[in-house]
Computed example of a mutant assay.
Amino acid sequence: MPIPFSVRAARVALLAALAAVVLAGCATLQPVQTAQSMLGSPQSAVRETFGNPTETYQLADGTQRWIYSKQPYGYEVYAADFDAAGKLTGFRQTLTEKEIYEARPGVWTKRDIAERFGLPREPVQYFTLMKREAWSYRMYMAGNLPAHFSAYFDDAGVLDRTMIIMDSRGGDRSRSK
């Protein structure tokens, strides 16, 4: 006995919805891998896949960066880079030791840190005796060890130093969900 058209259409619609959920899950669980397959795609495709960015920056070289921050409870900040034509050229997790070690004390400013790691979602602290403002981010070090990355700025807004401190309380990766 043939399946009625309405039941068949409902099955097709259900399968299409399931495929959309699976694809969205891939983008959530493996954002870097998902975005790497999208290189060359327009901004609209990136927005459809990852949603609205938490911040956007027009960079000095004419390119644009979108920040996707999972802070303050998550441990990741992703940067999506677009060329002048609005095509995706790169997507990476920026809260890594490699990225942090590229910061240049005495040269970088608050704007440079924000463009790389996004604005802090933890409360900004000011240390009166040091005369330094501190921005803090949660991150994972090698081996999935929870830590905090802090950037310290002088009163002129110039980066003075960076610091990575292990989280002595440990961490639970499930908090980032």
Rank of each mutant, 00 (worst) to 15 (best):
T128D: 15
A114W: 10
M141F: 00
A35Y: 08
D155M: 14
A24K: 13
L129V: 11
M141G: 09
G62S: 05
D160W: 12
A20C: 11
R111Y: 01
E48D: 13
R92C: 01
D167K: 06
G86Y: 06
R121A: 14
G40N: 09
L18W: 12
P42T: 10
Y73K: 14
P123G: 03
A156I: 00
I3R: 12
Q58V: 03
K87N: 15
A80S: 11
E97G: 00
V77H: 04
L95V: 05
P53G: 02
Y75G: 00
V77N: 09
G118C: 08
Q93F: 04
L129G: 08
I67G: 02
T109L: 02
M163H: 10
R116W: 03
Y137L: 03
G170T: 04
G106S: 06
R65T: 10
T49H: 02
R169N: 14
R138Y: 10
W135F: 07
S6D: 15
V124N: 00
R116Y: 02
I113L: 15
T49L: 01
A13I: 04
W135Q: 04
L59Y: 00
I100F: 03
I100A: 07
V77P: 06
V12W: 11
Q43K: 14
F153M: 06
G170R: 08
A35Q: 08
Y137D: 01
R8Y: 13
Y152K: 03
S176D: 12
V77Q: 05
K98S: 07
L129R: 14
S174H: 09
D160T: 11
R175W: 15
E55F: 10
L14Y: 14
R121N: 06
L129T: 12
T49Q: 10
P4Y: 06
F149W: 06
M1S: 13
E115V: 02
V77M: 03
G40M: 10
Q36N: 12
S41E: 05
Q93C: 01
F91G: 05
P123C: 07
S150A: 13
A103H: 00
A35D: 04
A84E: 15
Q43H: 03
Y57K: 05
M166Q: 14
Y75D: 08
E102K: 14
V107F: 11
L88V: 09
G86E: 05
I113N: 01
A35P: 07
S176H: 04
S37I: 01
R169F: 12
F82M: 07
D172R: 11
E133N: 00
Y68C: 04
R161K: 13
A20S: 11
K131S: 12
Q33L: 11
S168W: 06
L159E: 02
A16M: 13
R111I: 04
M38L: 12
L119G: 08
A16P: 02
L18P: 00
Q43R: 14
I164F: 03
S176L: 03
S136W: 01
I67S: 02
D160N: 08
W66F: 13
G170C: 03
R104Y: 02
E76T: 07
P2F: 09
Y152A: 09
N52F: 09
H148R: 11
G86F: 07
S168I: 06
S136D: 01
